[in-house]
Amino acid sequence: MLELNDIHTYYGNIHALKGISLNINEGEIITLIGANGAGKSTTLMSISGITKPKTGEVLFRGEPIHGKSPDEIVRMGICQVPEGRHIFPQLTVQENLDMGAFLRNDKAGISRDIDYVFSLFPILKTRRNQPGGNLSGGEQQMLAMSRALMAHPKLLLLDEPSMGLAPLIIQQIFEIIKKINDEHNTTIFLVEQNANQALQIADRGYVIENGAVSMHDSADKLLSNPDVQKAYLGI
């Protein structure tokens, strides 16, 4: 579904991604784990077209998208929940969700999807008319994911959904990620520092170090791999 071939991305003179290659199949949950500054977020931003790769290609269903603008990429069905959630602080919860459906015109479908995300995260319904900036971290993460779902993504990119959240909320968020994948067959690319949780719901995983993929295997094998356990699972 999504294929990255030898992606090189720079921030000014900093060579952030040094030849990332990976592929994601339809319906999978793929996780990308790695330390701070390894290039996880940059990989997602390169897919979304925010920081354009200098060389290499990104193929979505066989079509090159690395030259497209971010809004065209969203239009093709790739949505990202960026690190730090990026809720529109002065828009209400409802308006934030409406922004997620910005490219859609089907009113009936939109209100059906609003009901759906409220069923996933009932707390959002009670906060419907509050400004997004007033929500707690966990609620903001729920809202950010819901907003992305409002666009009906074919591929959902999640950047550190567990960051800064209480263990109980993290558990809930990961269950919902699994649920979205099961119920809608939405392909999910999950970037995480919380490697343990991520690998438990993922089909396959990539490990990124210093802007390059250092390991790639099925999630189970990575979980039992001694190197991964030592470096990322704290075992």
Binding site: D71, V74, P82, M99, F102, R147
Partner: peptide
């Protein structure tokens, strides 16, 4: 209006506006 909503979103968070499909 649609463009008005896009303007508000862009002014609050330009990158996120792009990620919701707004042509900034």
């Amino acid at each position: 209006t649609r463009i008005g909503k896009a303007m508000r979103a862009t002014s609050q968070d330009r990158m996120m506006a792009m990620l919701t499909g707004i042509n900034v």
